[in-house]
């Protein structure tokens, strides 16, 4: 059964979101309730606080999404929900609500991997030609994903330690920027120059994995040393130097992956995909490769949202992936590694 109208749920971190999607590529509504202002108090997402906000918001989001899309339960052919990866208590609210509505109205349920949602948000931009490659960069994830065919996701490279977004938040704290620091660091970087020459981690290594903890330490050592000798460092230059190192590694590994796995489309997805420095650097590089086109997920669909889960749910339904009402959250859900297959 190929669902025409999908209702989708996303609650893996600090956004409660419900969307209504038509044919897996048209957004009828995409309601996102963000808790950022709450977690700003603590300098990062507190899982129990996130879970509490999700249960406050969930039915309101359902109501708003259905009203905005002007649909009734009779119109909904399937319900898609993020069941991992993410914070378990947060995931459980979306999973519970989705299962309950599916059960109450006898609607099929589609389990969706959050990362596949980020990648397939690109369906709202263009038709995807397979095989395709995706660079997913967000607060919790940094990975290169190869899709040999629709609905098939294999990791070819991932972070060994911090996610890129995590590094941004930690560096942001030192620069006196509140959580989430990404957009502000990006803006400061645009005003500064790469003068500190931080290390480009794993650039020399012959794999597609990332590492950002060495860069983070180098950054902290530099600022700490300056503090001790009472030297004032230019914050914009610090931001620019940090961002250049992150972007260089991401772009370098991605271009190398493209050499080994030539694909016609590279998808840039995830919360950090909205980063201007990363976008323009990747654009510049991909422009030089005639055979590959860069698909950028639009800014407002880069952060966590349910529309992308609806798009992914549509693809999973095509592959006949459905779940029963015993569906549970899987906080450490991940794609298989490509090397395990080969």
């Amino acid at each position: 059964m190929q669902p025409h109208i999908i209702m989708s749920f996303e609650s893996s971190c600090d956004e409660t979101s419900v969307a209504i999607i038509e044919d897996g590529e048209k957004i009828l509504s995409n309601v996102v309730a963000t808790q950022i202002n709450s977690h700003k108090r603590f300098g990062g997402v507190v899982p129990e606080v996130a879970s509490r906000h999700h249960i406050e918001q969930i039915t309101i989001c359902v109501e708003d999404a259905m009203k905005q899309a002007d649909v009734s339960y009779d119109d909904i052919d399937a319900i898609a929900v993020t069941y991992g990866p993410g914070l378990v208590g947060a995931l459980l609210i979306g999973v519970t609500a989705a299962k309950t509505i599916a059960w109450a109205h006898n609607i099929p349920l589609i389990p969706v991997n959050h990362i596949s949602g980020h990648i397939l948000a690109s369906r709202f931009v263009t038709k995807i030609n397979y095989p395709a490659l995706a660079l997913v960069v967000s607060g919790g994830h940094t990975e290169l994903v190869l899709m040999k065919e629709e609905g098939d996701f294999k990791i070819i490279g991932e972070t060994r330690d911090d996610a890129a977004g995590e590094a941004y938040d930690k560096v942001g704290r030192v620069l006196g920027i509140n959580y989430p620091a990404g957009p502000k660091v990006d803006a400061m970087a645009a005003e500064g120059k790469d003068t500190f020459n931080f290390p480009r981690a794993m650039e020399k290594e012959d794999n597609f994995d990332f590492s950002f903890s060495g860069l983070k330490s180098a950054f902290l050592n530099t600022t700490h040393h300056a503090d001790q000798i009472h030297e004032e460092l230019d914050k914009n230059d610090l931001a620019a130097s940090f961002q250049s190192a992150v972007v260089d590694v991401l772009v370098d590994k991605t271009t190398r992956a493209l050499q080994e796995y030539p694909v016609s489309q590279l998808i840039l997805a995830g919360g950090v995909a909205a980063n201007k420095g990363l976008r323009s650097a990747l654009e510049e590089k991909i422009d030089k490769i005639d055979t590959t086109e860069l698909i950028k997920v639009p800014n407002k669909l880069c952060g966590d949202n349910a529309a992308m889960i609806g798009a992914a749910g549509y693809v999973m339904a095509k592959k006949n992936v459905f779940a029963g009402v015993d569906l549970n959250a899987d906080p450490s859900l991940e794609f298989d590694l490509l090397e395990d297959e080969e």
Partner: peptide
Amino acid sequence: SYTGIRIATATAKTLAYTL
């Protein structure tokens, strides 16, 4: 248990709302 009370409450709340 925080998770425990949220599972029953989220189920009951969503069910009452949706029906």
